[in-house]
Design a protein around this nucleic acid. Structure first.
Lengths: 199, 199
DNA sequence: ACCTGAACACCGTTCAAGT
DNA sequence: ACCTGAACACCGTTCAAGT
């Protein structure tokens, strides 16, 4: 008979994580496998090797647990572009392509992270601010090298993020127009925008 | 003691709708009032004056009912711009502003309509195609009057839709950057895009 | 401080039965 | 053809109790 600890070790053979971290991991894994409907506190607890209401000792409720998952994801995707990989414009393009790749690979995490939050988690707000700051810096650099038009870099960053986010969201929900031949790719739309902005 | 028919007449004093239509209306109303969590088949039935499982005689399951709500919404928002209201560029701008207004006014319907659908409702697909066709026509007209760059109108329409959709979605979830002073408006970002495209 | 097991109210769905 | 009432499995949350 398998004991709870076996379920844990099957996934984390070498590493010992706190119960809180194991709960977040379990929720993220269930999200990837079966979408939001698959994330039940009972299954989260079972995967983490605890009872179905142990999560209430670490999170206020289910939404609070999901906010922790979103905060962890938000701190991850907008990784700064590799250095020496080209012009500031190319670095910006790669940054947005990375965002698209992450979102298309983990649609449920993407939808969760950019969903509506009634709880205002400080962790979630700080992660969002950090991600935005990195984007504004990349936009400013591209403006300095004359690859983007001048003007408020925050506003231009918001335009680029809106286009990228919208292209991904429409693609994931199947509402993106098949343009001519072949399926339209969110990356193509992002590059279209950057091309129009640089000319 | 109030009888079921009273609940119906309170909302539709003059009009008699089919049970199916009353179920869709009830679901949309609950969606507006309390978000997706408030849409339970039991409450939908109660509002429509039927039992909590009467919906199963009209829809396969809950998702099928929600798909009918989404299809009805999708057929509504992208109303063609008023005639004689200005240049094709202004007509296009007004069309996207109308989209923004509708989405910001009914956030839950917006999220539902552009959410992921595992059911492939023919009704939903037809409504989406019709909406897209109207946008492509407006884009083509603006290209003809030299207010937008040449090229595949479907692809340009996809870019404009992605930006508009993304700006609304980020604004609704609180992830849109406050640009400088005052809160950023999705309409500003749409106009920024159209401005860059026309120059 | 952290966890468990039982319990409560609620929901989606199914089914036998009614007109 | 359309609807009802009872029933089932499931879920989020609470609570008393254990170490």
């Amino acid at each position: 008979m398998r004991r709870p600890v076996d379920a844990v070790n099957a996934h984390y053979p070498e590493v010992v994580l706190s119960t809180r971290d194991r709960l977040i991991d379990a929720a993220a894994r269930l999200l990837d496998q079966g979408g939001p409907a698959a994330v039940t506190l009972r299954e989260v607890g079972r995967l983490a090797g605890v009872s179905h209401n142990a999560p209430y000792k670490h999170f206020a409720d289910k939404e609070d647990l999901l906010a922790a998952v979103a905060a962890r994801e938000l701190a991850r995707p907008p990784r700064p572009a590799r250095r020496g990989s080209g012009s500031p414009a190319e670095a910006l393009s790669q940054m947005m392509h990375g965002y698209v790749d992450w979102a298309m690979r983990h649609p449920a995490r993407f939808k969760l992270t950019f969903g509506s939050w009634s709880v205002d988690s400080a962790e979630l707000g700080a992660a969002a601010t950090a991600a935005r700051t990195a984007l504004v810096a990349a936009v400013s650099a591209a403006q300095a090298s004359r690859d983007l038009p001048q003007g408020d870099p925050e506003r231009l960053a918001a335009l680029i993020q809106a286009t990228t986010h919208g292209a991904v969201d429409l693609a994931l929900s199947g509402h993106l127009a098949r343009s001519g031949k072949g399926h339209a790719d969110p990356k193509d739309l992002v590059d279209d925008l950057l091309g129009y902005l640089s000319s």
